[in-house]
C-alpha cells in the first residue's frame, strides 16, 4: 500500500487548523471522526457524542454551510472545509452569545440542554441558507435532531418568534 501521510487544512470557527493524518503522536488518525477531532483534540465540547450513528443530531456542526452529523464524517475527508461549532457562534472576543442563542436562552427552548447545541446548529444552517423559512421548513430542517426532553415545541415557537423579530428589525 502506498505511503499516504497527508496533511489536511480546515478552518474551525474561523481559525485555520492543520492536522497531519497518521498514527504518530499528535496526528489525527485516518479513522477519526470529525466529532472526535473537535471534542477531544480542540476541546470544543458543545457538539455532543450520543448515538454515534447519525441518528440523533446531538453532534451537529456546520460544514461548508450545511448542518451535518459530525459523528458520521471522517476528519480526513474534511480537507479544505470550513467548520462551525456552537462555540463559533458567540463573539470570539467577548464571548457574548449570538442573537439566536440568546433567543433559546430567553425562551428556555430546552430542558436538559443536551440536544440544544445540535438543534441550534441545524437552525443556524437553515437560517443562513433560507432566512425566512416557513414553520414546515423549520421542522423539516430539525427533523434529524432528537430531543428526549420534548423541547421541540418550545424550540419551534422560539425560532419562529426569532425569525419574526429579525424581520421586524430589518423592516
Amino acid at each position: 500500500m502506498k505511503e499516504h501521510l497527508e496533511q489536511i487544512c480546515m478552518t474551525v470557527n474561523g481559525v485555520p487548523r492543520k492536522f497531519v493524518i497518521g498514527d504518530g503522536v499528535g496526528c489525527v488518525s485516518p479513522s477519526e471522526t470529525l466529532l472526535d477531532t473537535i471534542r477531544d483534540r480542540l476541546g470544543l465540547t458543545a457538539a455532543k457524542r450520543s448515538c454515534e450513528h447519525g441518528a440523533c443530531g446531538c453532534c451537529t456542526v456546520i460544514v461548508d454551510g450545511d448542518a451535518v452529523a459530525s459523528c458520521m464524517v471522517l476528519t480526513a475527508d474534511c480537507d479544505g472545509s470550513s467548520v462551525t461549532t456552537l462555540e463559533g457562534l458567540c463573539d470570539p472576543v467577548t464571548g457574548e452569545l449570538s442573537p439566536l442563542q440568546k433567543a433559546f436562552a430567553d425562551n428556555s427552548a430546552f430542558q436538559c440542554g443536551f440536544c440544544t447545541p445540535g438543534i441550534i446548529m441545524s437552525t443556524k444552517a437553515l437560517l443562513d441558507q433560507n432566512p425566512n423559512p416557513t414553520e414546515k421548513e423549520l421542522t423539516e430542517a430539525l427533523s434529524g435532531n432528537y430531543c428526549r426532553c420534548i423541547s421541540h415545541y418550545q424550540v419551534i415557537r422560539t425560532v419562529m418568534g426569532f425569525i419574526n423579530e429579525m424581520k421586524r428589525k430589518e423592516a
Binding site: 443530531g57 448542518a67 451535518v68 435532531n145
Partner: peptide
C-alpha cells in the same frame, strides 16, 4: 432519506 444532517453528506 434519513434527515437533513445525513442528506447533506
Amino acid at each position: 432519506v434519513a434527515s437533513p444532517l445525513i442528506r447533506s453528506t
